[in-house]
């Protein structure tokens, strides 16, 4: 198995656990407070990286803006997903739709980066999208 796939699987694992910790957090406090603490943790990581690493920090302002755009897109997505639920969207509809976001990346990567997929990879992505829609169906608490 290739290194990049192992790293993707690690990311999958970490993000998957956040699904539970996020739920545990919002079971106790407001989404807003949970988001504040989420951001504080991100700031701690940001502060820690320069202390422990030997990164090349000679970056240009456009590159800083491009990196910050990642946080903005991700964070805005968190807020709009919450707002969709808060405005009365059913979780059984909103969450499966939201989990289809890789479809946009796949299309954009084809259009803008020229990434091409083999038939097997295309089938794998199809199964992945089907899986997240099926997995997003609400469970009933016991």
């Amino acid at each position: 198995m290739q290194t990049w796939f192992m790293l993707s699987a690690a990311a999958l694992l970490f993000f998957g656990v956040t699904g539970v910790t996020q739920k545990l957090s919002t079971n106790e406090t407001s989404f807003e407070m949970s988001f504040v603490w989420f951001c504080l943790a991100m700031f701690v990581i940001s502060a820690a990286i320069p202390l422990i690493g030997h990164e090349d920090w000679r970056v240009t302002w456009p590159l800083i803006a491009l990196a910050a755009l990642g946080g903005l897109l991700n964070g805005l997505g968190v807020l709009t997903s919450f707002a969709a639920l808060e405005k009365g969207g059913k979780a059984s509809i909103v969450i499966p739709i939201i989990n289809l976001y890789p479809l946009v990346t796949v299309g954009a990567a084809y259009l803008f980066l020229g990434e091409k997929l083999t038939a097997r990879q295309g089938l794998g992505i199809g199964f992945a999208l089907a899986a997240v829609v099926l997995l997003s169906q609400e469970t009933q608490a016991t």
Partner: peptide, 14 residues
Amino acid sequence: ASIVIPVVGLAPLV
């Protein structure tokens, strides 16, 4: 990106 993001997007599995 077209493979890594769908794999990472499987987080609901975990």
